[in-house]
Design a protein around this nucleic acid. Structure first.
Lengths: 180, 180
DNA sequence: GTCTATACCCGGATAGAC
DNA sequence: GTCTATCCGGGTATAGAC
């Protein structure tokens, strides 16, 4: 079972926010204890009064990002005529707006022990609801969305590929009735 | 246009093979110029007589791995009654057998300038053929396979999830006729 | 809580002797 | 082609003064 993340001091929250900014601006290489300290005007050694280390910093960013992602998905499906299409659009939009954050969250194992209880399930719920209770189809559709986003972010599609059309084609196929 | 990779000396080939072993055994962190040199019994500085640097080493591993992947896909579809299912099985089997190699190849931009001409296209051809000329559906199916593999490798599916069933569900949906 | 100073580890890469 | 020696950079983390 996941355990709730510990409360952070104001300075701790400031550090996490600055760390996220550094990550989103310059990718993982841009986020080091030294650069993070410099961003908030202290020394690297002082960070350890507020956060246990780099893993703690990253886990806090993941928790914030995952919550925002869940909120975006919930907002997208609310009242949408085609929830699956709305969800796909929100998924892709989040990844394109926050590519480094998306990869920090989704491209490696989750730091589950450092995340708030229930957050992972909350993020997964809208897709499960849109697929109407077929968990295999929901997982397949999640994989499709994650794969589309990762291949786009890593520049793997050929020049001129119509990614909107690929999204439509995939969601149309996967959104149909599951037959086994 | 991609340019052919330069020929390697026997020592160069030995270094690339050793580098791939280190990667597959211990992941990216296990592959450094120093560990690589130690593996073949020389000093790190001597590597630079055979390879331009780390990027060169990684590109050579990618080229070898991508060729092997293409061969595995070609073998899987040859004479298979259900080419798409065969391709899916070969795709997942390769990723599970070589997780670190899979990620080196597929989880970041390709070093196209250092790869042999035509290799990227060769690796993509079997899937395009299995999807019968619908490029959008082929891209969607590629994304599905990549997503399934990445989510499995990064331990993102819930405990007890039936991944075989998710693969079947996704491939069945995506393999149907494209309608738009 | 922050500082200075420091320690330790790792990495990629180069110069020049042999 | 290999070596030694070295440089530079990065990272995490700690001790002790203030």
């Amino acid at each position: 079972m996941a355990s709730s993340a510990p409360e952070l001091s104001p300075r701790g929250r400031q550090l996490v926010a600055a760390a996220r900014d550094l990550l989103e601006e310059g990718g993982p290489e841009a986020l080091s204890m030294r650069t993070l300290a410099a961003r908030v005007g202290i020394r690297a050694s002082s960070i350890y009064k507020h956060l246990a280390g780099r893993e703690d910093v990253e886990a806090a960013i993941v928790a914030d990002g995952l919550r925002e992602f869940a909120e975006a998905c919930e907002a997208a499906v609310a009242g949408a005529p085609d929830p699956l299409a709305a969800l796909g659009g929100a998924y892709r939009a989040f990844a394109r707006a926050h590519p480094h954050l998306y990869r920090l969250i989704n491209d490696r194992p989750l730091p589950r022990a450092l995340l708030p209880d229930g957050l992972e399930a909350r993020a997964a719920a809208p897709l499960a609801a849109a697929l109407g209770g077929d968990p295999d189809r929901a997982r397949a559709t999640w994989a499709f969305a994650h794969g589309m986003v990762m291949l786009e972010l890593t520049d793997r599609f050929p020049e001129g590929a119509d990614l909107d059309a690929a999204w439509r084609s995939g969601l149309r196929a996967l959104g149909g009735a599951a037959t086994g």
